[in-house]
């Protein structure tokens, strides 16, 4: 320890300056190296989410995303023909507030499938919406299948002990459906 640097002002500034320089250099390097993989991972996750809720398609729906009123629309086509549209939607009525789901619609507005993206509902209760429960929406058209829990006069079986989450899920799907019919269905069906 004999040759340890003294705490003079010059030494302190010099040593901190050098350490910061080297460290930010290292960080910058790692940032540049990981930048591409991070983007690829995020894109892959996005495409994966779209794939989960739509029938087979062969375009890249993430290329031409429409962002209207806070909802994101991914239009999928197969050999040029529109096969469906995935809508990234949200609700603020969950038991823990905000959560996001992805709903796939066929061109006529029938729900194909849905997936839960980002949620913090109560584990074991509200987060059961991730399970088979959400399959009851599949292949239903919101004009004939009322998007509300049975307690409120709708057609949806609520999750046991999680009516609030179930209502919120319906809210998110309704928002996606209305947005889809208003913004996307018109343009793609012409």
């Amino acid at each position: 320890m004999a040759n340890k640097l003294e705490s003079t002002l010059k030494n302190m500034i010099l040593s901190l300056f050098l350490i910061s320089m080297v460290m930010s250099g290292a960080l910058g390097f790692v940032y540049v190296v990981t930048k591409k993989p991070i983007e690829e991972t995020q894109k892959k996750a996005e495409i994966e989410a779209v794939k989960n809720v739509l029938p087979e398609f062969d375009n890249d729906p993430t290329k031409d995303v429409k962002d209207i009123d806070g909802l994101k629309y991914y239009v999928a086509t197969k050999s040029g023909e529109v096969v469906g549209c995935a809508v990234k939607t949200y609700t603020n009525k969950g038991f823990s507030g905000h959560f996001e789901i992805m709903v796939g619609f066929k061109p006529d507005g029938t729900i194909f499938k849905s997936a839960v993206l980002d949620q913090k509902e109560t584990p074991g209760l509200g987060d059961k919406m991730k399970t088979k429960w959400k399959d009851q929406f599949n292949e239903k058209h919101p004009t004939t299948f009322k998007l509300a829990v049975k307690k409120d006069g709708g057609d949806v079986d609520a999750i046991t002990a999680s009516t609030i989450t179930s209502r919120a899920f319906c809210d998110a799907v309704t928002r996606a459906y209305e947005g889809y019919m208003k913004n996307i269905a018109k343009t793609t069906n012409q």
Binding site: N3, S7, M12, S15, L16, I19, M23, S24
Partner: peptide
């Protein structure tokens, strides 16, 4: 780096290293 970090600024230096 222990011999190159003056005592009085060691905590700051450690934090920079750890945060990196």
């Amino acid at each position: 780096l222990k011999n190159y970090i003056p005592d009085k600024v060691r905590i700051v230096a450690f934090i920079v290293i750890i945060a990196t």
